[in-house]
Design a protein around this nucleic acid. Structure first.
Lengths: 219, 219
DNA sequence: TAGATTGTTAATCGATTAACAATC
DNA sequence: TAGATTGTTAATCGATTAACAATC
């Protein structure tokens, strides 16, 4: 039974849970039916204590005899992490990066689907890219309402990102994955996850000169 | 004068420094010649105390009268962050995502250039994409040595990533930006920065349902 | 049983923020 | 000067890890 919540969970913990899920799926494909915290720790690059603490939050109890049942744990993780019925995602900005993201997410995780694309370029309107139709920006609000979309990916140029994000929030979006290299200023209840490609590459460049920072596990 | 180093700097600090640099460049474009920690704090989404502490590590002193000189601070940041002569980067995997990354980084930051692409698909060998030639995987080691490359971007499918990463390290690469959704197991002195697109989207989806986690500033 | 693993709390570690004397 | 800002240390905060009784 999943924990009745109450305690809020950190961003890092949720990240690690999604990683565990992936590793558990791999294990299941390889025919492994049960796993110890120690094994999941090695594969994920975290400590065994952290794995146990993380798994506590999803409310699934392992056994001291066989560790964790892979199937049962996957079920608990899905109950904890996924929206029942699946998550419907909008993608704003169908440039080079946007199209690559379309391709990347298509079919990768069922239950996490990009169902609508938007671009200001009329040339792209009506086109279907990787099974997803591209709409004009004017249709943003109505389309997001009609399709019951809660999550959006912003892949527009930096100067346009803040305006687009504000429109998304007014349309009812609650979470944004932002690829534009600008800090978005939005209400506190909106969750924003920034992927700043240039910043990441600059960090790698810096530490490639100034010694590795043996950070463990996930980003 | 830049600090003679000694104290190692956290990954987060370096990330914020690159963000400050971007904001300072914007300010300079807008004609702003000096800035207070408070202003940089607002724009970056961090606290003023943190901005001051961060800027201390680059060894540039502001003045109590006018705050920080934008030009001089940019110079100090460049001295601190950049490799003299610029950073030469290799990109492994020229699929949808790889090509988008080529386009994204081309001309965005001079001094941070993708100078060689690699792919196992013979169809792509010899092609020039966004000004960068695509080589066969066999040439990886020789090409990286010849081009004096220290940093690589891995955009190959998950199952191939560990093998590719090990070859890169043997060839002399010291830092890797990894887009493959697998934890890389490499020597501790190699810096690995993971960008896990699915994990990031799953985190956004989770927190879009379970309340915003008003995280400040950068990722 | 003996040995290993679990859930869970206490101790540790590191990063952020608050505070303040020195400065302009 | 008075007010605001700086560099820098101390206090706070949160996350990770170590430890251990209970369990199989």
């Amino acid at each position: 039974m999943p924990v009745t919540d109450g305690a809020s969970v950190s961003e890092r913990t949720v990240g690690r849970l999604t990683l565990y899920r992936r590793l558990l799926n791999e294990a299941l494909s390889a025919g492994t039916e049960s796993l110890y915290s120690r094994e999941l720790a090695e594969r994920s690059g975290n400590s065994a204590a952290q794995v146990r603490r993380d798994l506590m939050v999803v409310g699934y109890d392992g056994s001291t005899a066989h560790g964790y049942s892979v199937r049962d744990l996957l079920k608990s993780l899905s109950d904890y992490l996924d929206r029942p019925g699946g998550e419907r995602v909008a993608l704003i900005g169908i440039g080079n990066l946007g199209r690559a993201l379309m391709a990347y997410f298509t079919g990768r995780r069922p239950g996490l689907r990009i169902v609508a694309g938007f671009d200001k370029d009329p040339y792209r309107h009506g086109r279907v890219i990787h099974g997803c139709r591209c709409h004009p920006m004017n249709d943003l609000e109505t389309c997001i309402a009609k399709e019951e979309i809660n999550v959006a990916i912003v892949a527009v140029p930096g100067p346009e990102a803040q305006g687009v994000a504000e429109r998304l929030v007014r349309a009812g979006v609650r979470g944004i994955l932002n690829f534009a290299p600008v800090p978005l200023h939005l209400p506190a209840h909106i969750h924003v996850e920034n992927i700043d490609l240039t910043m990441s590459l600059e960090k790698v460049a810096y530490f490639s000169r100034n010694g590795g920072t043996e950070r463990k596990g996930n980003n």
